[in-house]
């Protein structure tokens, strides 16, 4: 047991180290920005004094190491400074957006993970059948679609084409094409509003997850103990659910975690399509303004989530591995 704890501690340490290096890389990249923000916002008519004053106010006159240390300690205590573009407090700005993004990702995961597992096991159960072949072509196709294509098709089918058929409101579509939620939107309404973006993301991630689930189970079906179970005369469905699935758990958990990590990042495009006020939307908007503090903070949050989820996958696959859990 201590061995496994040591392995997990080692992975955690490695994760923290990666996070640190990544923050350094992002800060270093943004440091290379040619010209500085003060010159850009004050324009060409600005005098040297006003530019210097602006630099002093934003701390641009300090050397990189100090600013980085300052930023890091600020980030750790959730004080991320102010947006350069609209002077708002970043922590406040981002926390609402982040919770929106997490809501969307969580909603999607709640639909996608059970669906993918179920369909994947089914495909493994009836492999090489007509159903399996159909699933293969279907998933391959939906993996290949750009997110915005899926999104607009869904908008067309479930929103634009259904105008005037809304069962709830008068003359509205089934689902709104714009997921404009605000802070005082109720939970139920929120679910309704984000249905289309969540469905888009579901279609994108389910395909990958179920392909991997199917592959992981089929991979195991060649092992001797499955053959033994088959020779004992156990039903096919029981073999897969009771014998193959528990052993395929590690790769499946891994795939789920990777897809969740993808979800957090993949929301960027979907949020832009549906004009959803999430972290991805704010990130893209501020990239266009070259608003460094906001870009830095949100990039860091994205990277941290990504690393964290990958780390979780890593640790879970250690924990679910019986050979590591019960060493001889």
């Amino acid at each position: 047991m201590s061995k496994i704890l040591a392995t997990i501690a080692q992975r955690l340490g490695l994760g923290v180290l990666t996070l640190f290096v990544v923050s350094l890389v992002i800060a270093g990249m943004l440091e290379l920005l040619p010209g500085d923000f003060c010159e850009t916002i004050l324009g060409q008519s600005a005098t040297v004094e006003t530019v210097n004053a602006c630099r002093k106010e934003n701390g641009f006159d300090q050397p990189f190491v100090f600013r980085y240390a300052d930023w890091l300690s600020g980030f750790a205590t959730l004080d991320m400074g102010k947006s350069l573009a609209n002077k708002r407090d970043i922590a406040e700005l981002i926390s609402v957006r982040l919770s929106n993004t997490l809501f969307l990702a969580g909603f999607t995961a709640a639909i996608a993970v059970p669906l993918a597992l179920f369909l994947g096991v089914l495909a493994a159960l009836y492999r090489y059948s007509l159903y399996d072949r159909f699933v293969n072509v279907f998933t391959l196709t939906s993996i290949s679609f750009p997110e915005f294509f899926v999104a607009y098709i869904l908008v067309l089918l479930l929103s634009v084409m259904t105008v005037g058929e809304n069962p709830i409101g008068p003359n509205g579509p089934w689902f709104p094409a714009m997921a404009s939620v605000s802070e005082d939107t109720s939970f139920g309404e929120r679910l309704y509003l984000v249905f289309l973006p969540a469905l888009t993301l579901t279609l994108v991630v389910v395909a990958h997850m179920m392909r991997m689930t199917r592959a992981a189970i089929i991979n195991l079906l060649a092992s001797p103990y499955i053959e033994m179970a088959r020779l004992k005369g156990i039903k096919n469905s029981r073999i897969i659910v009771k014998h193959a699935l528990p052993n395929a758990l590690a790769p499946i958990i891994n795939v789920i975690a990777i897809n969740l990590a993808y979800l957090i990042v993949g929301v960027v495009v979907v949020e832009v399509v549906f004009n959803y006020p999430g972290l991805g939307k704010i990130f893209v908007d501020h990239v266009k303004f070259r608003d460094v503090p906001v870009v830095q903070a949100s990039a860091m949050i994205f990277a941290a989530t990504y690393i964290l989820l990958n780390l979780t996958a890593d640790i879970l696959s250690i924990v679910t591995n019986p050979r590591l859990m019960h060493p001889r």
Partner: peptide, 17 residues
């Protein structure tokens, strides 16, 4: 290290610069 940062996010940070 490069793979630890989500690609789309990293690319957008670089294009900011």
């Amino acid at each position: 290290v490069l793979m630890a940062i989500p690609q789309l996010i990293f690319a957008l940070v670089i294009f900011t610069v």
